[in-house]
């Protein structure tokens, strides 16, 4: 892809031109700062550029949704974050938001309305599914995944928390790969171990790390790609793969990266 003219417009730039994007891409803290997840952000932005979606980001105006603070018990901090974010979002008249983080997705979609922030919020798996359904993303025949085994790890905050199970699977099906399910999947999916603010502290004493338990289950499928749609799951599963010394044979990839790869965007 000729990328010199890749565009990442901010809401501020759009507003100054008197324009309104179709959708705001909420990048999230992991998507902005975490080296691994920045690749997912970039892959998703490339897809948006390729398809010609009129989107914008908040850039430096974006701040944490407050999810980890709320789950850890700090309601004050959560509400401070939420209210200032709502001020920014409403200031720009944002109507629709897409995010690649299920935690941001859950918070923006389910928890901001109680504080006055009402938006249509979709996870990037749902957004990608829309693009595929509309024929705007069409993975070429044998996009490099034909015959490869992919397994999808359900993020708790996308799955059980919000009942989104099909969209990410539909996206993966478009790759023409062999989608294999782990023993515990969908409503019974096993957590990666990072939710509920566990990402930001060590686990309590036990006899095993949750991410190892989950990684073993993913490896049992024989898949060469573990697909996820969540930055925390990605970290936990990547660590699990390293722990199992399987980095050379098994990759942990976000669904947006897989689509971008199949589209030759990376």
């Amino acid at each position: 892809m000729n990328t010199e003219n890749i565009q990442v417009p901010t809401m501020a730039e759009m507003a100054s031109k008197g324009e309104q994007p179709e959708v705001l891409f909420w990048v999230g803290c992991a998507g902005s700062f975490d080296d691994r997840y920045k690749k997912v952000t970039k892959a998703f932005v490339k897809i948006l550029n390729k398809v010609g979606v009129k989107f914008a980001v908040l850039g430096e105006e974006e701040t944490c949704t407050g999810d980890p603070a709320r789950r850890a018990g700090n309601e004050f901090l959560f509400q401070m974050q939420a209210m200032s974010n709502i001020q920014v979002l409403d200031g720009y008249g944002v109507k629709r938001i897409v995010t690649a983080c299920p935690h941001c997705f859950n918070t923006l979609k389910n928890e901001y309305p109680a504080l006055g922030g009402n938006y249509e919020v979709v996870h990037h798996s749902q957004f990608l599914q829309e693009l595929i359904d509309e024929g705007k993303v069409r993975v070429k025949e044998g996009g490099g995944f034909k015959g490869r085994k992919i397994t999808f790890h359900d993020s708790c905050f996308l799955g059980r928390a919000n009942n989104v199970y099909e969209a990410p699977r539909k996206v993966l099906e478009s790759l023409d790969a062999e989608l294999v399910e782990m023993k515990r999947c969908k409503t019974k999916g096993l957590c990666c171990g990072a939710g509920g603010a566990q990402m930001f502290k060590d686990a309590e004493p036990g006899n095993k790390e949750i991410n190892i338990e989950r990684t073993e289950e993913a490896l049992d499928t024989g898949a060469s790609v573990i697909a996820s749609g969540c930055p925390f799951c990605m970290t936990m599963l990547s660590d699990g793969i390293k722990n199992k010394e399987k980095e050379s044979s098994v990759e942990v990839k976000d669904i947006a990266e897989l689509i971008a790869e199949a589209e030759d965007l990376v």
């Binding site: 803290c29 902005s32 700062f33 920045k38």
Partner: peptide
Amino acid sequence: FAPWKFPPTDRFKWA
């Protein structure tokens, strides 16, 4: 404004 210790001015560096 992020759960990790990164300066907020780095938030948009990825672009």
